[in-house]
Design a protein around this nucleic acid. Structure first.
Length: 159
DNA sequence: GCAGTGATCATA
DNA sequence: ATGATCACTGCC
């Protein structure tokens, strides 16, 4: 699973001429119709369609009337799947990350690269391997759905 | 524990 | 057009 490989990498946000790089500490994986807790569980809609597209693009959605959440598409074109970035160094909670980094629907469907102003860098080197042992797996937070999907250990946290 | 808040989606 | 739901947060 791609999700845990993202732990320890850096989320870099460019605002104006300033860059902020924050280590990713908490993620959750979501897939498609085999995952009842996923936005993509019931097929493609205008909101989730980027999840079905090629990987490496941002899936940003607005929720509860006041927060955005940031995901990156991870599965091959045609296969729904994304990883929700729930926590970075110094900020915990997907809503707060988007608020602090000024992430909103304008990034929806944009690629993760410098051009879009939001991307991921691997600055870890060998450190990542040591962190492997410190990754905790838990159930996902606040997901709907039922049974098996809720019990999946698809939340990964860096200790 | 739960209110606040509005887009999204199924239903019609 | 309407109503239920929601991958959240902050305050109680």
């Amino acid at each position: 699973m791609v999700a845990k490989e993202m732990l320890g990498k850096f989320l870099v946000r460019k605002i104006g001429n300033k860059e902020r790089a924050l280590m990713i500490t908490e993620v959750e994986a979501y897939t498609g119709k085999d995952d009842m807790s996923s936005h993509a569980a019931n097929g493609m809609t205008p909101r989730n369609k980027v999840m079905f597209g090629p990987p490496g693009r941002w899936y940003v959605y607005f929720i509860y009337g006041m927060y955005h959440c940031l995901n990156i598409v991870t599965e091959r074109d045609g296969q729904a799947g994304a990883v929700l970035i729930r926590g970075v160094d110094g900020i915990s909670g997907p809503g707060k990350i988007c608020r602090d980094l000024k992430i909103d629907r304008r990034l929806y469907g944009k690629p993760a690269n410098k051009r879009s102003g939001l991307w991921i860098e691997d600055r870890g080197g060998d450190k990542n391997k040591k962190q492997e042992t410190k990754i905790k797996k838990t159930r996902r937070i606040n997901v709907g759905g039922h049974g098996k999907a809720q019990k999946r250990l698809w939340r990964f946290v860096l200790a």
